[in-house]
Simulated assay, not measured.
Amino acid sequence: MTVSEWVEAWWAGRQANKPSTSARYRGLLDQHVLPRWGRLPITAISRGEVQQWATRLAAGKSPSTARQALGLLRGALDAAVNDGVLQRNPAVGVRLPRMPRSEPSPLTHGELWKLADAMPTDRDRVLTLVMGYGGLRWGEVTALRVRDVQQRGAELRLREAVAEVGGHLHVGTLKDHETRTVVLPATVATELASWIKAKDSNALVFPSATRTYLRNGSWRRNVLNPVLEATGLPQITPHNLRDTAATLAINAGASVMAVAQLLGHETPSTTLRHYAGTFPTDLGDIAKKLDRAARTAKNKSRRREGAKDAPTRDRP
């Protein structure tokens, strides 16, 4: 059996992912895994060859691409081991360079409001503020319906997300498959409540001109990029508005857990991986406290040593 034959059988039997995830994984298989391994017998793969392939892929593409492609190969070969086709998985134990931490590119409060004020329509203005303070993903904010806006705009109940795959839109659950609630500042909530006033409860909050789901590429090209150029603001993407929401929340004193809940991260470790440099460390204050304690202990130690070394007077 060739690797290609086994991988195709394994792929057909896998639990279904979200359409966007399935498309990304299928692309990795077709572009990187099968061209290298597909024609080989599944028993002819060595760990050294897998290591060389993954290392070259990380250098030529990116550590992220190599990690995902290696993960797919490892998963397929794990299944082969479980089915008795292989005695061991040659992709286990392969090491890759550490992935560089992506640095967020947030806007300040002032820059966010400057961007919102320059937007050509009320829809775009409110959309910018909701993303900039609510931290919603693009697929979440564009799937938002009027019925999901509660407490006069102060709370958003996120239930669905839209994903664009190969030019087609797919509506499904959120990234972690769980609904969540996002709380907005009162200033933004007031603008959102005014925007959706008199709209049908089933209507999209931020529809396109044709009353369908707003597409990321179209909005960036026709709205965001021209406004950024006209205002001289940093060149950002809609995802950077999510960075903005996280950073502004952290600067306001939000904990790691609170920011993870705001962004819909599955674990706080994901939040730390992306925003560790944004959280205050208080290392300076800690060093000062340690220094005070160290000085006190040092002085006490010297006094004790001095008392031991002092000469004793003869008693009469």
Rank of each mutant, 00 (worst) to 15 (best):
265 H>P: 06
145 R>V: 14
77 L>M: 03
286 I>G: 15
25 Y>V: 05
132 G>H: 02
100 P>V: 03
286 I>P: 15
186 A>R: 10
274 H>D: 06
193 A>F: 03
270 T>V: 14
9 A>R: 13
240 N>R: 08
126 V>T: 08
189 A>G: 04
135 G>A: 05
91 A>R: 04
137 R>E: 09
175 K>G: 10
201 S>Y: 00
235 Q>M: 05
79 A>W: 03
155 E>W: 11
278 T>E: 15
230 A>C: 06
62 S>E: 06
45 I>G: 02
35 P>C: 04
218 S>T: 12
65 T>A: 11
80 A>R: 00
143 A>S: 15
260 A>H: 03
228 L>W: 01
47 R>S: 11
311 P>F: 09
110 G>E: 11
260 A>C: 02
77 L>Q: 01
306 G>T: 00
194 S>L: 10
27 G>F: 06
107 L>A: 02
11 W>V: 01
146 V>H: 04
236 I>W: 04
227 V>N: 00
18 K>G: 09
315 R>D: 11
166 G>T: 07
76 A>S: 03
276 A>P: 13
84 G>E: 02
170 H>S: 14
131 M>H: 03
169 L>N: 12
68 Q>M: 14
67 R>L: 11
20 S>W: 00
132 G>S: 12
245 A>T: 05
137 R>I: 15
223 V>E: 10
46 S>K: 12
115 L>K: 02
